[in-house]
């Protein structure tokens, strides 16, 4: 876990984008809560740098055609 976060950091991705949760089968509401909570966090962080780079490449390919 720590290693993965370190790897993400070296590649310029915020380690906050990766999270572990402990959850039991009876925790349906908690699941919904986690989904919302994590989605909000990611929205706050914005798109990942990889996504942006890929998007940029796609755009340039489109223009090239």
């Amino acid at each position: 876990m720590k290693r993965l976060k370190g790897l993400l950091r070296t590649i310029g991705i915020n380690p906050e984008r990766l999270q572990f949760y402990n959850l039991s089968a009876a925790m349906g509401p908690r699941w919904a809560e986690i989904c919302n909570e994590f989605t909000e966090k990611i929205i706050a962080l914005g798109p990942s740098p990889i996504w942006l780079a890929r998007q940029k490449k796609k755009e340039s390919l489109k223009h090239g055609e």
């Binding site: 959850l23 009876a26 925790m27 349906g28 699941w31 919302n36 994590f38 989605t39 990611i42």
Partner: peptide
Amino acid sequence: ANIIAFACHYCAFAAADLAGVMRLSYLPNS
């Protein structure tokens, strides 16, 4: 936001199922 959730079949996935059965609504990005 595009999010991937890795869930254990026996705990978290079952919890997600339960959330569905309970008709809880949550953000659809995961």
